[in-house]
Structures are given as C-alpha cells and as structure tokens.
Amino acid sequence: MAILEVKNIKKSFGKVKVLKGIDFSLERGEVLAIIGSSGSGKTTLLRCLNFLERADEGTISVGGQVIFNGADAKTENEAVTRRKRLHFGLVFQSFNLFPQYTVLKNITMASELLIKGEAKDCREEYEYNRKLREKAYKKELKATRKADRAALTERHRELEAKEQAAYEAHMSAINANMKAKLAEVKPHALDILAQVGLSDKADAYPCQLSGGQQQRVAIARAWALHPEILCFDEPTSALDPELTGEVLRVIRNLKGSDRTMIVVTHEMEFARNVADKIIFMADGVIEEMGPPEQVFDDPQSEKTRAFLHSSLELTGKAD
C-alpha cells in the first residue's frame, strides 16, 4: 500500500492559483524528485504536505489514513495539527537552524520536548477526566435523596481512590518510559551526526559552520524525529556550488534505509541518479511523472522537453 497518497490538492493565494490539482502516490522507501521552473508550485506543494500552508481542496493520506481533507472545517486543534505534521520532516532551503543552540541541542531539542510533552498530555488527560467525574458526581448527588447520599459519596470516594491508583501506576510507567527515552536522545543524535559526517561539530554553534555543514545539521535535525516522509525544499539552492556535493551525498546515503523522501531540486543529475520517480511540475499541475529514465530520456510533454533542454544546457550537458 502506498505510504503517501495525495489527491487533487489545490491551493490559491488570493487570485493566483498556485496548485491546480496535484495527484500522486509514493511507496515506502521511494525517493521522489520534483523538478520544474520557479513558480511552478513545487515549494507550495511541500509546504501543504507539512501543514505550513493549508491546501484549499484535496486529501493527503499517510499509510492509508486520511490526515488532511480540504473539505473539513478549517478550525483544527493546534495539537492535532502538530501530531499530523510529525508524519513529515522538512529540510529548508535556508537551513533555519536555531542560532543560539549548539549543533547537538538543535538536533535533540525537539525530541526532548516531544517526549516531555507526552507525559504532560497524560497528566492533563487525567485531570480533565477527574473534573468530568467530579461534575457528574455532584450532579448525581443533587438528584439523590438525602438518605442515599452517604452511600453515593462512599462509592465516589472508592472510585476516585481506584482511579488515582491507576493513574499513579500509569504515570510512573510513563515517567520511567520518558526517562529511558530521554536517555536515548543524545546518543541517538550523536549517531545521526556521525552519519552526516559531523561528529566533531556537536558542540559548535551554527554560525561557526559552513553552509554545507549547516544544511547537513538541518538534515540530521529533521531525521532525528524519524518522520515517515522526509521532504527537502531545494536543499542546495542556498549553497555555493562547491558545497552542494556534500549535502547531496548525505541525502543519497539516506536512501539506503527504507526512508521515503521527496526532494524538490534543481540538480538534474542528482534527480536522475537518486530518485525512483520524477515529477515535472509546470504552472501548478503535474506535467509529467514517471521513472527518471522515462522523464529525462524520453519526455512525452513539450514543456518537459523545453525545461530539460534549457536546464541541461546550463550545465553544459545537452547533446
């Protein structure tokens, strides 16, 4: 079954229709490269997937479960959106590392907050349920005859004690679990940092790194949360040409695992070599989609041919 299924995504900014109905699906472990000229809607598509923009229409399903439906009401609990967002990771064109934190802290902070958040949610849920029970009990108390009230109070007290005990057991399990998880965060981050080749930079600050190194940290940061689908928004566009290689190599190395990735890119060579699937976008629609050999060597659409011709000419690789 497809891990990601996108159906009929539409998005307008004012009167400008940026996405005019995007459909595609992606299998687990596949790498999708989205190419196309500036303004074709590639970045907006990624931002819709990551809930940074809200699509006007269409559905997004992850692992068969619909996580976004444009037909639903616009008001959604922030916490719900946050949880849905975690299906996706996003690496930005301009890195967006947190400048005041070390490389390691950049990677671990979100995981730690999420782990701590879980315990907090549990506490709040219990408090909320307790308030509900209290309310119901008071209502019932009013409705009962005076003679029966003592029995009711007794029953309520017993129930509360049981609930309290259950909650405490649950909480201590969660706290133990939380501590175990928190202890793993740092070694895990160091492990990922090693995989992007920056073990020696754990205690450096972002401003001390080159652009390529910063982008590799940003990749590690997104990766550390283990999103099901990792998105890259033109990850090398803000880099000097000699630094793009190291970043592309890191992305290529990620491919080995069963990680699903979507890469918006202008690096045609990279797209051809790494992607399993290419989408060429023009004017808010998918103009052409298929395996790299087909899209690059035998493009069906006139627009694709023109785009590939001009972008390959630029790098001097046109026939």
């Binding site: 990551n50 922030e78 975690l86 996706f88 990771g89 967006n96 590392l97 940061r221 997104a222 949360l225």
Partner: peptide
Amino acid sequence: QYEAGQVLGMT
C-alpha cells in the same frame, strides 16, 4: 525560525 519549530512539532 517559526516554521522550523513548527515542522519539528513544537507548540
């Protein structure tokens, strides 16, 4: 900076 926080699941 806000968006980076958002995609990392921060409140």
